[in-house]
């Protein structure tokens, strides 16, 4: 690990929030010649205010909710024209990525802009107080789905693969070697790179802040969050997910669900539908791998 803390301590992140760690690991690899574009999200707050300063040691461009992909495209275009070198990284939540900013994300991906887009997915609008997003999983409680979400989780990584961009990967901070290997690889590729982190949220998912890493790990071990990598039109599983193609190797999803109060009211029928979603996702992975 490098000596520099790219994300300084004492941020406004909630106890147990993985965002500062996730960001620090990215910035350690990307280095100081990096600009972060951050749309409205928890990170807007985590990145400090004008009185107390910001915890980031790289420039941060705050962005309206739907705009980060386009702002990043413009920054990169200017750097190209003015012969400046550096990385342009979007750091966006799931609401910006999959809902309000999706058209802009899709446009930038279709143009194959030379930027890295990272979605930290805490599976709801957490900064405004836990409202469901397109990326909230089926059955999960939120303040706008008091009876549990009825629809499936929008499959962003697949949708981005369908844009035929050079690189797509899913990440989990519970597996730092896999995590950092993917960041490093993304840095070596040019064109549009899409990275998607499942980022557990203690207050939003209703679990004890000490369990963040355990829950992130269980998401992978139960097969709910497969670690994968798409490059040169080829998809492969990575790290612990390689063995989980065999369903019998996966832990039961109950182990993941029972630690989170957002799934407390989940009925047996909803649990069955959630399992079907997960099975369908693995079939889709197999289809795309063959």
């Amino acid at each position: 690990m490098a000596n520099v803390n790219y994300m300084l301590r004492g941020t406004a992140a909630c106890p147990g929030c993985p965002i500062p760690r996730e960001l620090n690991n990215i910035l350690e690899i990307a280095g100081k010649d990096t600009v972060l574009v951050v749309p409205a999200s928890c990170s807007t707050i985590i990145m400090g205010d004008d009185i107390h300063g910001m915890p980031s040691v790289v420039p941060v461009v705050h962005s309206p909710f739907a705009a980060p992909s386009a702002i990043a495209s413009g920054i990169k275009a200017a750097m190209n024209q003015l012969n400046k070198k550096g990385n342009v990284i979007v750091w966006a939540g799931d609401g910006s990525t999959g809902d309000i900013g999706f058209a802009s994300l899709s446009g930038a991906a279709e143009r194959n802009e030379d930027i890295i887009y990272i979605c930290y997915d805490n599976e709801a609008y957490m900064n405004t107080g836990i409202q469901r997003s397109g990326l909230t999983p089926r059955g999960a409680w939120s303040t706008t789905t008091p009876e549990g979400k009825r629809e499936f989780k929008k499959p962003l990584p697949f949708l981005m693969m369908d844009h035929k961009i050079p690189y797509v990967a899913t990440l989990s901070i519970a597996y730092p070697f896999d995590y950092e290997a993917k960041i490093k690889k993304a840095m070596t590729i040019s064109g549009f790179r899409y990275l998607h982190i499942l980022s557990p949220c203690p207050p939003g998912w209703r679990f004890d802040p000490s369990l963040t890493i355990e829950i992130a790990k269980l998401a992978v071990e139960t097969g709910i969050w497969p670690l994968m990598e798409y490059e040169n039109n080829k998809l492969k599983l990575t790290g612990p997910s390689i063995l989980l193609k065999d369903k019998s190797k996966r832990k039961p999803i109950e182990e993941y669900l029972k630690l989170q109060e957002r799934f407390k009211e989940l009925s047996d029928e909803e649990k069955r539908l959630l399992e079907e979603d997960i099975n369908a996702m693995w079939l889709e992975i197999e289809r795309r791998m063959s």
Binding site: V35, V37, V61, S63, P64, A67, A70, I71, A72, S73, G74, I75, A77, A78, M79, Q81, L82, K84, S104
Partner: peptide
Amino acid sequence: ASIFGAALAGA
């Protein structure tokens, strides 16, 4: 949004 980003970077 894109020209805003570009303007911030000096274009």
